[in-house]
Design a protein around this nucleic acid. Sequence first.
DNA 1: TTGTACGCGTTATCAG
DNA 2: CTGATAACGCGTACAA
Lengths: 370, 370
Amino acid sequence: MGMQKKLTIQDIARLAGVSKATASRVLNGNPSVNGELRARVMRVVEEHDFVPNATAVSLAGGNTHLIGVLAPPLVWPALPEIIRGVAEYIEDSAYEIVLYSINFANAECNHSEVVKRILNLHLVSGLLAIFTDELMPQITRLAQDGLPIVLIDDQEEPGHIPWVGIDNRESACTAVRYLLELGHTRIAHISGPQHYYWANERYRGYCQALQEAGIAPEPELLLQGGFEPLHGRQCAKQLFSRERASWPSAIFVANDQMAYGVLEYAEQQGIRVPEDVTIVGFDDNLLSAYTRPPLTTVHQPFSEMGRRATELLLNMIDPQYLAGPKASQQVQAPTDFPRLSERDQPVHLQLPTSMVIRASSTQASLSVKT
Amino acid sequence: MGMQKKLTIQDIARLAGVSKATASRVLNGNPSVNGELRARVMRVVEEHDFVPNATAVSLAGGNTHLIGVLAPPLVWPALPEIIRGVAEYIEDSAYEIVLYSINFANAECNHSEVVKRILNLHLVSGLLAIFTDELMPQITRLAQDGLPIVLIDDQEEPGHIPWVGIDNRESACTAVRYLLELGHTRIAHISGPQHYYWANERYRGYCQALQEAGIAPEPELLLQGGFEPLHGRQCAKQLFSRERASWPSAIFVANDQMAYGVLEYAEQQGIRVPEDVTIVGFDDNLLSAYTRPPLTTVHQPFSEMGRRATELLLNMIDPQYLAGPKASQQVQAPTDFPRLSERDQPVHLQLPTSMVIRASSTQASLSVKT
DNA sequence: TTGTACGCGTTATCAG
DNA sequence: CTGATAACGCGTACAA
């Protein structure tokens, strides 16, 4: 009934008539054990469903086999997907995930406390920090103290800490080139907060694409937004309150969240998408396939980012490590990561994005095309 | 530069000129320590930012201060909200979350392996199992072995294991009563898979409300759905392919996901919501506020469920426990949980739901009202 | 009040 | 190849 006293390796050893050491060797697949002894121990182990106490293993081995995932609440758009990637990779590894969810909204508590909790306890062998730019000072310190850390964050320019992300500039450029190919020439841009790295990069990509096409960016088509639907809504209002002739034929919105606001405003005002105006977003959040109309956008490979970041982190923690026992047999060729000796140049892993064409975009109508 | 050798409590003791034991006492707030000594130790501790090694504390104390959260991938609708609740409660406790994300889609791997991983390692001091009905056999076994477990799951009728959820029947009943009050009399129901507890309960709630109003459920208004948008879509098609006169004036859909499918189909067919037909869902997923039109639905207090379940679990693990040091000062009166002695009757915590009225519902139009 | 010594469950070292 | 035995870092009876 009650939690029956767990067996220890000592018990197993006794039952098998061997020493602790031998039992341990068998459990760890040490080849230097007599066949018969090995069999005897294994039988006892299986008979009792014995498994070594994780805590003791950690203490003795110096590796907790725990990686921390530091992130804002999971209700943030891309987070579930990223963590799915992390979980999938972790699944066939010997590691587990410790979730540190930070509540930025809760201003009363000092977030550095959360970080202290991590560093302090030495609970995790490594840390995956997702969208935690506000904690960069503390995180940097953790890294300096020698804790393996990988970043997934696009609010600051990648620095010395290993980082996984995308090429925001090039991706934005591609999106705008797509609009140009459709024949649009009056392309507006609703940008993110200018001090955010991603926002600035996407803006630069927008400019670059226009420049390539020999089009000078018009200041009146460039709106400073934020990152929420409301911001998109406000910018849309500003844009469409002008006389019809000065409307853009397409809008490149810096992220999907704001694009939702634009779509909402357009609908309320009876502005048809894509007939009257084409909308393109960025991120490809899960919702974006269900807006009306579904949103054309730049797909970020979030779950892949989670997977690769985890792979990177595990390799930092334990270079000998190949995910799980099975992994060695799988074709899944382990990515070649820079070795420690070459670590002078920081690891920045840029994953490819892709355009997802949905119903919110179409060719520029002739009337607008001039 | 490299991970500087971490200090041990031994070092602290030496630096403060006391014994390990005294240092330990100071760190644990044991009152029986001389004021001066205490100060001396504290100074050294703060000077070096010392914190005890979590692993060692666990091994010595027999409590890992880790709770496992077993759940499907976080991309499942309600999960991020539930976990937000868990994280919020955990945040000011001495515990951390270990995330066990199970990939049901990955049929190749035996899911009982995942569970084995949990039981075996004795890594977590307790388990919160969310939407894991398929693993009930294994979970039950874990519970029998003495592992504290709390369930958040609505696919099976609650049993002996402590459980947090809602009253599906009553909630559904309330939703249908709402429709009746609006004047609807021809109310259809798209149900979930009948072998799911929630689906069956919601169906019974639907019947009960009709019965109260003296309306006999019409078989042709009762459709067997599933749980995905596609299922809702199919049922909607079936419903609206009949002659207009036999259409329902309102549909109570067993969950929001399916309601999305209904909305989608209605839109494609030019059926106006709510003018031609009123739609009411169940769950109040995050998306439901953004559908077109926004969906009237039954709100499940997901984050609150996560919070309460965690509170319950922590109390099971450590009855003396009040969340965090601050908690004792806060007004947040710790809920009174049944004590062990009364545990013969299983703990079932039913949280209240609420109707969220949005644009997809309205009074029955006169023409349809007969 | 403070210090000593042992236990927690494994792994790893070093003789045998 | 196998078996004592020493770490691992901390809590805690027990003795002083």
